[in-house]
Design a protein around this nucleic acid. Sequence first.
DNA 1: GTTATTGCAAAGCGTTTGCATACCA
DNA 2: TGGTATGCAAACGCTTTGCAATAAC
Lengths: 139, 139
Amino acid sequence: MNHAARDVLNHHALRATDGRVRILEALRDAGRPLRVGELHDRLGTDRPDLVTVYRTLDRFVASAIARTVLLADGIRRYEIADQRHQHHLTCTECGRIEPLPFCEFSSLEALALQKHGFRVTDHMLELFGTCRDCAHHPR
Amino acid sequence: MNHAARDVLNHHALRATDGRVRILEALRDAGRPLRVGELHDRLGTDRPDLVTVYRTLDRFVASAIARTVLLADGIRRYEIADQRHQHHLTCTECGRIEPLPFCEFSSLEALALQKHGFRVTDHMLELFGTCRDCAHHPR
DNA sequence: GTTATTGCAAAGCGTTTGCATACCA
DNA sequence: TGGTATGCAAACGCTTTGCAATAAC
């Protein structure tokens, strides 16, 4: 585990400091996009400074190790970028964020080009609603 | 024009102060989502305080006169809410934001429910790319 | 006249920067 | 050893809050 993280850092020509390894692992373990503060909280005792987390995440994004995720609340979150472009289901009851394993927009992008002369290079889609658990156990 | 704005405010049980009328008109005239600072700048001389713009926009959102728009940069923007739920094309070259007059997601929402037990109540979609003008006049 | 709204100042919060120290390669 | 990364403190920008003065109804 530890080695894998170091390898990733080395591969991206980033010095494999203890802080970076732990930040990368925390991001990986989370399985969902994390806010900077959340990530910092997860680093446990003797953790790197919050400022270091900010700087490290910037580095990770610049190196395409991580990417930012933007949801409707306007808060920037980060996730590991080793998977394909991804969307999320955000439960408005409990706040849980679940990755959405599909992405079908070729028709929409074709429409944008036809009707607006707009060539789509990227898109953002987020769905909000009630997750299974909250539907079964309403508050 | 002025009367129309006052009517809207009265209809929502908001006192029709000069500042609110001007903020509502500016939002209307913009034709695209505005940041708080942008909106404030557009209010011209003897304009209300920036704090008032913040408070007024909160009121407008609470009264469903306006709504917030969130794009990939994480900056909150506001637009008049008198039209249907809307998406945007954002040009990454010139920054222009263009409304997208369609929204087709029933199939996606059905899929989320089937596969994830997730009932979608809202969604956000933003497309990014190169607009017609920038494609014709590259920098 | 009563209550909501405004301006001003200041606090808050998340994020960034400067700089000296500590660390990795 | 040389250059990068870190911690700490402080600056920064956007947003919110407290409170007295003001204006709408």
